[in-house]
Design a protein around this nucleic acid. Structure first.
Lengths: 202, 202
DNA sequence: TAGAATTGTGAACAGTGCTTAATTATAATT
DNA sequence: AATTATAATTAAGCACTGTTCACAATTCTA
């Protein structure tokens, strides 16, 4: 059959993304396959390749969604009554909670390794780096004397660190992997880092 | 043919590990397959399953090798003339250099996700955690008043952070991914962390 | 209503992990 | 030395994978 128009191009795109996301949440990347996804939405493999370049492309788009969701969470809460330092800790908590809420979906962001032949799309890399700018904005007022380059460096350093704790926790590579313990570790890292970095106590 | 005895059980094991490691170094986990590995050593698939449980088991053993190599590097250098703080920085440098020397092989450690059905073998988890104890030993004299639990926490927090920087650098998820920049970030993290953590300047 | 355009299919290709019956070379026994 | 037993290795097979593409089915246009 053809042009069933049961669903528009964009609708199918969304259906595929939703179905794929569900599979990932339940079974991780290993459980994801083109046939499963399209079977779940009542289509066949070929259709997927009308909407996405290939499976990697689909994964990239799932991750873009995840990153956007996370971004909204991180920037959403009203935190004007908190000090910058407290806001940074809050950021860490949201991050860890997000990761632990759907480990598979979150970890997928860091599972797709883009080789030299298949590099990250530019728009997607922006999505990734967006994260760090949130941290930069919070670090700026904590160290007014620092240059922009130093702020960038500090944000990269600290937030990559937070990520590291988080992923090692979720993949059971720490001596203790419960969410509470990971939250503690993140708090600990931020605290100590700030003692070395911040000019003020605000 | 049978019982060729061209190679002993253990020899085949090593041949498989070597061949697999080579493939991983050149093409990453995605390039690794049972057929390729066994073809490379002049055997057929079945033989692999005589020596390893399955492909995941093989990967685990590759990683164990990598971890041991790394452990030897981290504990090998004579650093008695350095302060504890300097030794910690040296540790970070060795770690980053190791990762960048063979990114695929190093990253493989963090690519095998063990699910609940297939958890990490206990002996292997020990291999992983071994890393952190090196850091603990260096942190102890820097903060003599802290309890053992706090030292463990600090080491986990700091070294998971170092790992995070490293993996995000290698997988191009930082604004700048050169080795030199990653070395800077690691130095930065350790420096600031120690300012918050250490009791002494030694 | 005929023809053009588009949408979706599903078979095919080359690969994957893993299992297992059959085969064969050696070692042990008679 | 001939035979039997044993263990090593294979090759075929299963159910799956990503990806492509000639074709079929449907709708739009003329």
């Amino acid at each position: 059959m053809a042009r069933r128009s049961d669903h528009s191009h964009d609708e199918i795109r969304d259906m595929i993304l939703n179905a794929a996301e569900t599979i990932v949440m339940e079974h991780g990347l290993k459980g994801l396959s083109t046939r499963k996804v399209t079977r779940d939405i009542g289509y066949t493999v070929g259709t997927l390749y009308l909407v996405f370049e290939n499976l990697d492309d689909l994964v990239t788009h799932i991750n873009a969604r995840t990153l956007n969701r996370l971004y909204l969470l991180l920037t959403g809460k009203d935190t004007k009554d908190l000090t910058k330092k407290e806001q940074l800790h809050r950021l860490g908590q949201i991050y860890v909670n997000f990761a632990y809420a759907d480990p598979h979906r979150w970890a997928l962001i860091y599972e797709d390794r883009h080789s030299k032949d298949h590099p990250m799309p530019v728009w997607y890399k922006k999505n990734i780096l967006q994260m760090f700018t949130i941290v930069e904005e919070l670090l700026k007022p904590l160290a007014p004397t620092r240059t922009e380059g130093e702020i960038t460096q500090a944000a990269s350093s600290l937030w990559a660190g937070v990520y590291g704790i988080c992923i090692l926790g979720i993949t059971q590579k720490l001596n203790c992997s419960g969410k509470e313990y990971v939250l503690e570790l993140v708090e600990y890292l931020i605290n100590n880092f700030l003692k070395g970095f911040a000019d003020t106590e605000e």
